[in-house]
Write a protein that binds this DNA or RNA. Structure first.
Lengths: 160, 160
DNA sequence: TTGACATTGTTGCATTTGCAACGATATATG
DNA sequence: CATATATCGTTGCAAATGCAACAATGTCAA
């Protein structure tokens, strides 16, 4: 029987297992835990400094990569609900971090962009992110880091 | 300047970047998206079949690995809130999937265990999980799969 | 042009969530 | 033993979330 990555080799099992399913090797589960912890740890840092939430940072992060984006562009790419994105944008506008205007070429679209204050915050959180990721990858061999990225990329492409 | 895994080499950049921060290489972000998608895709399958939610499946998954667990053991390990876990347990009991009794040795603790119906469901979702993970890892070289697991393990250990 | 249909973003509403307070139980300290 | 302190699970409540309905705008075909 081929081992497909979810069965422990028998010598590591103490007792006959209740099932063939091994939770600690189940990716959706492990990835969720890791992602939650990392997101939460990083969120503590920027929340303390700027008072924004995770959905708000997600939106700002997008705006750090592209001058202008619409609500749809954000939520389609980030797996955030439409309304979550819309509300994050509203809060960020109120806090003075982003501008919202209707796109003149297509008046259904909202054009989001960073204010000067938003750019400053974005730049600072960007630096914090680079530092955070540096700490995070310290335990991995340099060549493994690239490998890790490319494996994530592969799975993201396979699961659109 | 050392490349710490978050800076694109200059030849891959089309335009002068707004910042050094590259969202597509930022792990908390990428992992969150991947984890969300995988969790959601898998959730569709077991929700359709058994009508349970993600927190409920998390709890059942734990019970598939250990006969008896307390609420605390579950939420400490899974990064779920206390109340979320408690409520998942209540719903699962109502649906007839788990038994709840107070631990006689320490009456503060609740002892959760699967009913026969719960075991049947757990076994079936376990099989579905093995199949799901098989599909998922098809795009990776076999030796990469182990590597991926061990890298996740490393980062989980570094971020408790 | 008109009318049917599609897309975008916002909002109302019910559900879910996280946090804090709480009661019950256990442990430690005097 | 008596009292203070800690731990566990539940619950009330406010905030966040997801879904569906909607208005506004755009597209397409007759």
């Amino acid at each position: 029987m081929p081992n497909r990555g979810l069965l422990k080799s028998s010598q590591t099992q103490r007792k006959p297992p209740l099932t063939d399913f091994v939770l600690d090797e189940f990716l959706p589960y492990r990835l969720t835990i890791l992602a939650t912890r990392l997101s939460e740890q990083f969120a503590e840092r920027y929340r303390a400094k700027f008072g924004i939430s995770v959905p708000e940072w997600r939106l700002v992060a997008h705006l750090s990569q592209a001058e202008k984006v619409s609500i749809r562009e954000v939520y389609q790419r980030v797996a955030m609900d439409k309304s979550k994105t819309s509300r994050a944008a509203a809060r960020l506008e109120k806090a003075g971090y982003v501008n919202k205007r209707t796109n003149p070429a297509d008046r259904r679209l909202v054009e989001l962009s960073l204010t000067a204050k938003g750019h400053a915050m974005s730049a600072e959180i960007g630096r914090m992110g680079i530092a955070f990721q540096g700490e995070l990858l310290i335990g991995l061999e340099p060549e493994d880091r690239e490998k890790f990225h490319s494996m994530i990329e592969t799975m993201l492409k396979e699961n659109p």
